[in-house]
Computed example of a mutant assay.
Amino acid sequence: MPELRSLVSKLRSKNAGPFWLTIDIFCGSDAAYAQVSQGLSTTRVAEIFDTDGQSIKRFDIPQLNVVKFSLPRPTVQGAIGDRDMHGASWAALLGDLEI
């Protein structure tokens, strides 16, 4: 099974306000999009980020070959316990997933 990072053209995460993070998976082709969209469940993403699956918002955008997840930040942006103020390192946790 291939790793997610080898299937997609871009995998990024970013800050989506003080309470949310967004992870964008740009698949680059219809085939890669189909494989990622079907093979990556919201439940699996919730397990990786140790959050409740009900709080994750998932957006499948076939016209752009993009799968997007928005999830609550574990700590408020800028708080003492916030280890990634810009949210840029979260996508790396998904890159090793086998799809």
Score class of each variant (00 low, 15 high):
residue 61 I to W: 06
residue 50 D to A: 15
residue 70 S to Q: 08
residue 22 T to S: 07
residue 15 N to Q: 08
residue 97 L to N: 03
residue 93 L to W: 13
residue 25 I to P: 00
residue 74 P to R: 14
residue 20 W to K: 11
residue 52 D to E: 14
residue 57 K to L: 14
residue 7 L to I: 10
residue 98 E to Q: 13
residue 65 N to T: 10
residue 45 V to Y: 00
residue 12 R to N: 11
residue 29 S to R: 03
residue 13 S to A: 07
residue 25 I to D: 00
residue 85 M to S: 12
residue 88 A to V: 15
residue 80 I to K: 15
residue 86 H to Q: 12
residue 50 D to S: 12
residue 76 V to L: 12
residue 29 S to P: 06
residue 73 R to G: 02
residue 18 P to D: 10
residue 50 D to Y: 11
residue 11 L to T: 05
residue 65 N to P: 01
residue 1 M to S: 15
residue 78 G to K: 08
residue 70 S to A: 10
residue 59 F to Y: 15
residue 87 G to C: 02
residue 24 D to T: 07
residue 42 T to H: 00
residue 34 A to I: 04
residue 82 D to K: 09
residue 38 Q to H: 07
residue 53 G to H: 09
residue 88 A to I: 12
residue 14 K to M: 07
residue 60 D to F: 03
residue 38 Q to K: 13
residue 90 W to P: 01
residue 67 V to N: 03
residue 29 S to K: 02
residue 84 D to W: 01
residue 1 M to Y: 13
residue 90 W to N: 00
residue 85 M to H: 14
residue 93 L to R: 14
residue 88 A to G: 08
residue 76 V to A: 06
residue 17 G to V: 02
residue 53 G to M: 05
residue 48 I to P: 12
residue 80 I to S: 14
residue 26 F to V: 11
residue 72 P to F: 08
residue 94 L to D: 00
residue 54 Q to S: 13
residue 83 R to F: 09
residue 48 I to Y: 06
residue 35 Q to W: 03
residue 27 C to V: 02
residue 48 I to S: 10
residue 87 G to F: 04
residue 87 G to R: 06
residue 50 D to G: 12
